[in-house]
Design a protein around this nucleic acid. Structure first.
Lengths: 190, 190, 190, 190
DNA sequence: AATGAATGAGCATTCATTCAT
DNA sequence: TATGAATGAATGCTCATTCAT
């Protein structure tokens, strides 16, 4: 596909995210996306060859974007705990500021829309954090527990805390982040 | 005369859960449910007046069931930490053994299917744990942090650990539970 | 079909008429008839082998009843005009008192439900009036116009007058009947 | 870009009338309309948002058309009887030439399809004839009987005569119209 | 005989996709 | 390229009929 106007792809992505947030993935349809993006319905098919492709394409795009965003904060030279804290803050910040994106990702996982490639992407993604945790272990700062479990524990906690805040319409500030990080840190630290 | 068979409701529920697990909520349709439940499609409408009602009804049923299951393990007379551990094990056990149910619940939340009543149910449910944590605080065993945050932290962690195990097809055993519980305990303990 | 309980047939007929009057022939369904007749839906099939047969059966029944009712008033020995007046009053009286029945008949005619036999019945039925009009002609009281046209003229007028009264909820009394009969009489009289 | 084709509405209307005439309102379904109109079934929903709306829309359209057609023949300057005759001929002519339309209208009235607006339209429509009859009375040509009754009488007669001719496949000609008009005129004239 | 639960063909409606402009 | 009208397969739901009790 030669994209004449790359901005249209963005418009379509944004419209899709807004709609899924508002009415759920189950209610998503092409006519609605066209309308929300202020484009003709046929135009969608200039940029994506099917609804499935649109969704997969957006899913992969978001996954990449998200991984990049999280790692943007990792600075290998900083002390270990500082690094973990920054990663933590950044992760939560991301989750909140791009809530629509994560909502979309979560509802796509497990839907029949995703192709194999997307499903694989869904499962990879945390190699950078692995390395960081290994460093923590070598510095005798982190418990000798499987990295995958440590990550699941921290990520799960962070996700749920964000969900809670979104539901209760609580704004997340520095004091909140410090408090909840202390929970995470105390759990993984040796 | 033939009487309405209460077992049919269960058959329909079970078929629905299986299908959503296998192909996602987005692919769910009445014909498929009928087939999976080995019932005529019309029969579904003897027990539920619409697809929406079927989904809401199942959602509410599962929420109640789940709440009951979690609390079944709380024994007020046991020492605090024992109680938390039992609750934790029970919660994870539930999550694993009724994975289909939680998968369904999570994909329904945020779909356009749920009515107001179901949405409300979705948000309540943790009063019992609140009380337990208060006891922990009064016994000077738990950090002075908002109960809601403590719960979100532990639940999120537990959920994600289960997801991880399901994806990796890891069986959860006592040693796993002890290990991951130690993460949770260390984070909330004073 | 051996009818165990002939009263049930009447119950079913009456329920059908009431429903068609209230919601129209297009909305008629077997479940509703059963409910309205306070009978199980299956019971309808003890008395009629199908919906079509029920409708045709009722249609024929009403046609016969109606023809009998109209002619009940013809007394061959009375003077001609007296006879016509009595027939007219009787016809209108019937139309009003058995409005449901005529509503049903009219909506059935032209529906795809009626079989050939019923359709034929629909077209016959006025031989008695034919003879009366012939007598009128032989007595030089009636215009020399095709009987069928005279009948259509009078019947059409009567039908529409009744419809008008039903819509406007006007009660028909002797003075009304005298006034409108004068219209009819003046038109056919020589 | 393709534009909505106003002729399609007419095609759909015409197909609907043909089908109702042939198989009755009770047998009408969207697939059949699409086929008869040589349009995809989905196309119907581009022009009407539901079957009900299609029927109501057509009903209202026909009512307006019909009222306009009837009055098109009223020429206030002509002598009274000439005017009534012309109206009469015109009314019958209409009834015959647009038999399908009247068949549709009659079967819709009393069906559960019509909305309030359509039902109201159904009841209005004869103000022009009222005025004509008033003129007839002032010219001492018409009996002092309620206009509504006079109209019901004439219309009912005309309707039934047309029905009779349609059933018997009789062609209506000038002599027929003169003959039957004489019946009407004799009934209303003073 | 009487009942109403069970059934699946049939119907109204939706929606991804194509097509004419 | 951009558009939205056109399409018909797919879906939710209804309802005449059958069946088990």
């Amino acid at each position: 596909m030669k994209l004449k106007d790359p901005k249209k792809t963005e418009l379509i992505y944004a419209a899709t995210l807004r709609l899924v947030k508002q009415h759920g993935l189950t209610a998503l349809n092409m006519a609605a996306i066209g309308k929300e993006a202020k484009l003709g319905m046929g135009t969608l098919y200039v940029y994506f060859k099917s609804k499935e492709e649109l969704i997969n394409s957006l899913f992969k795009h978001l996954k990449q974007l998200n991984t990049a965003r999280i790692y943007s904060s990792v600075k290998p030279n900083a002390p270990f705990k500082v690094n973990v804290k920054e990663l933590y803050d950044n992760y939560i910040f991301n989750r909140v500021n791009f809530y629509e994106e994560h909502f979309f990702i979560e509802h796509c996982s497990g839907s029949h829309f995703l192709d194999k490639e997307a499903r694989k992407l869904d499962e990879s993604a945390f190699t950078g954090v692995f390395e960081l945790l290994n460093r923590g272990k070598s510095e005798l700062l982190v418990k000798e527990i499987d990295n995958a479990l440590l990550i699941a524990h921290m990520m799960g906690s962070a996700n749920e805390l964000v969900n809670f805040c979104m539901q209760q319409k609580i704004k997340i500030n520095k004091s909140f982040l410090d408090k909840t990080f202390s929970l995470c840190w105390d759990s993984i630290k040796k």
